[in-house]
Design a protein around this nucleic acid. Sequence first.
RNA 1: GGGGUCAUGGUGUAGCCUGGUUUAACACGCUGCCCUGUCAAGGCAGAGAUCGCGGGUUCAAAUCCCGUUGACCCCGCCA
Length: 587
Amino acid sequence: MKRTNYCGDIKKPLIGTKQTLCGWVNSYRNHGGVLFIDLRDRTGFVQVVIEPANKEAFAVAEELRNEYVICVSGAVNARKEGYVNKNIPTGEVEVVADTVEILNTSIALPFDINTDKNVSEEIRLKYRYLDLRNPRMVRNMTMRHRLAQTIRNYFDKNGFLEIETPILTRSTPEGARDYLVPSRVHHGKFYALPQSPQMFKQTLMASGIDRYFQLARAFRDEDLRADRQPEHTQVDMEMSFVSLDDIFAIGEGMMQTVFKAVGEEINTPFERLPYADAMRRFGSDKPDMRYTLEIVDITEIFKKSSFKVFADVLNDGGVIRALYTASSVETFSRSALDKMTDLVKANGAKGLVWLKYKGGKFEGPTTKYFTEEEFLALKNALKVEEGGVVFIGSDKEEISSLYMGALRKELIKFLKIEPAKKWAPVWIVNFPLLTYEPEEDRYDAAHNPFTAPVAEDIPLLDTNPLAVRSYQFDMVLNGVELASGSIRNHRRDLQEKILALMKHSKEESAKRFGMLLNALEAGAPPHGGFGLGFDRLTALLCGEDSIKEVIAFPKTTTASCPLTESPNIVDDIQLKELAIAITDQED
RNA sequence: GGGGUCAUGGUGUAGCCUGGUUUAACACGCUGCCCUGUCAAGGCAGAGAUCGCGGGUUCAAAUCCCGUUGACCCCGCCA
């Protein structure tokens, strides 16, 4: 190894030692006489000085340009008084070069490595090998590594086995679109890339593995978003003979360990919030619990309202709900209020009632329809104070939740409300097992077709399937759906019964889920687990809005990679071997 | 499949609304020269864009209109 140390590690204790450093020329400052280089590697950078007295080294150094790769040997010196740079970690020392060797030159790069400016993502991805030199990306990749190692260590310590499941597997038409891989040996047949290792991990439970985990790649051929890529990494785990409490304890322990490993703190146990409450109080199944702002049900107050809008909604079995923001009268100009109205309309509302509380009374276009009694009750229910603004929506419960949730998010953003805490994790529990698809006249899994119903609700499968509760849960952190899991069906008959409600016949189920169903009837133990979005977790801890920032080589919104120019056409010979003909090609 | 935003030297932007006084501006980067203490070094000089692409309107288009391509964000979709 040429190198004796990393640039970022050259600090005070090394003063007086000789070091050999390798790295990139981050900045080159030639003063005609003395010459300075900021030498950079993964760990940071350190100043190298080349004195004119050292003629040989100086001659080499004069040829340097930004991003040349060099090897420098020399003594670590303390900087003289007045030459110390307090803004950088290595600012108290510098390396006085004995020798400078150019290992490689560099063309002038398409963008600056250390720029604060936003280089377009297109350019960054095309030159990702340069983008990854940026300190922020180095930090993100380092964070990702640290999280992965900590997670592996945590599961290992808790008796889990890491087992790899196949990437080439079979298509399961449930869920997202599959990525398909044609078979050369079996013409006309295709492998599919797994959307998740779900069936394999359940099969592993049947094998008696007892505790399994994997940092698993999962593939879904659906349109992309800031938090969705065609391939993503999930922390996948499954355990046998457990209750929800056991799974939650492992999940919370993992989060606590992981956060601690990167200098953060997350409190356990996590709050458990029933799905219905999440929808009512926050208008979302993934509420951002950092903010205390809550939707309040005020249906009772307006039960006898003469306001036609409210009365009609109530006759129809609807609800009236409110959001209240203190000291916001001045912020809500007429146009700002119109913006809020437009927002809820875009989310399904017919309108939005707003009331400003000014000079000890409510103001707004609809005040004439309300009684003093109603105003008083409203003031008490929402704890309205001078300068506050009340937003009221009335609709069917489902619609109301949807747009009041959207309004809650917008109010937080618009008023720049400060979060009450940095990390706000919550388990969302008590999801219904099934939803109903009217167009197809069938039930569908609310989340995952392998989720077990709550034991005492099993009889309801025959009488009122929509009332059946499930052992399904989500882990939500700061409004991001991080993980999803459940206790599974471990008996074939019950699993088949549920699949039948989704209009899968026995024959069809056997065809699609045969491996799993066969394993279930051969002594599969009770089991459950979760899959956690590793990219999303990393993005949260890096403070990034998009998971692209924590994936080394991500895809663009159109699922392509500017760096490798994938996807791309293939040779005719390859197609012929696979017995594939292209019938419709782009361009 | 739908909606929105954007596209100007290598990079990031201004100019566009209100077409012509623009030889398309600025910062960074790049090239050359000068300079012995800078650290986002400094000084001087210079190169580099037919304004994503195609069509239209006009005496005249970076600027107005239509189409198209690409990027990003969102809805649908994502068990």
